[in-house]
Structure formats: structure tokens, C-alpha cells
């Protein structure tokens, strides 16, 4: 059971209030019709599955209904930051102390 800081509510909330929505920072191609099948397939189906840092989207479904991003260590399940939609992550690699 995660304890997730909603950057809009400004509080930690229980995981039950949230839905995970997959990998973050994917954006819909501006002209889908110009994409090859392969490019579209990449956008549609292919996702990272890292052991370590992962930027992912969550929605505060039973809360403020806002989508936001989280940087999570998929090994320790530690959430290193959450940030609003449109913001860039601050944590993009492990510091030595975080490395698990």
C-alpha cells in the first residue's frame, strides 16, 4: 500500500484513492496519420519496464481527479517525487545514497 503525495492536494494520501495510468511523458504524435505502422505501434504498445527509476502517471481518482506524475523506484517501491502534469521530473537518476 503506497502513500502518495498528490501535488494538487498537497498531501500524502492512501493508495486506495489513486489509479495508476502507466508510463509518463509519452505524448500523442501531433500527426498520427503521418506515423508509420511501426511508429504508431511504438507509441501505442511499447513501454519501458525498468528495474529502478520509472516515471509514471497516476490519477487522484477518489480525490481531486487530477492526473500527475510520479518517479518511483520499481525495486524498492519508493516514490522519490511526484510532480504536476507538464512539469519535468527532478529525479532522473539515482544518487549514490538512493541506489538500492
Amino acid at each position: 500500500m503506497f502513500y502518495i503525495y498528490c501535488p494538487y492536494c498537497g498531501e500524502h494520501r492512501e493508495e486506495e484513492e489513486f489509479h495508476p495510468k502507466g508510463q509518463a511523458h509519452l505524448s500523442r504524435p501531433t500527426d498520427p496519420d503521418a506515423c508509420s505502422d511501426e511508429e504508431w505501434g511504438d507509441y501505442l504498445y511499447f513501454r519501458d519496464n525498468p528495474r529502478g527509476l520509472h516515471h509514471e502517471i497516476w490519477v487522484h481518482a477518489i480525490g481531486c481527479r487530477k492526473f500527475f506524475n510520479a518517479t518511483r523506484d520499481t525495486q524498492s517501491y519508493e516514490i522519490l517525487e511526484t510532480y504536476r502534469m507538464g512539469d519535468a521530473p527532478r529525479v532522473t537518476h539515482f544518487t549514490d545514497t538512493q541506489k538500492s
Binding site: H19, V59, K66, F67, G86
Partner: peptide, 13 residues
């Protein structure tokens, strides 16, 4: 509704 919000909030704000 979550689907609509997803597109509104993440793609077309």
C-alpha cells in the same frame, strides 16, 4: 469520465 479527463489533462489542456 476518467478517459475524457486523461486526454484533457495530459494531451489537450
Amino acid at each position: 469520465l476518467e478517459w475524457l479527463e486523461f486526454y484533457h489533462q495530459t494531451e489537450w489542456p
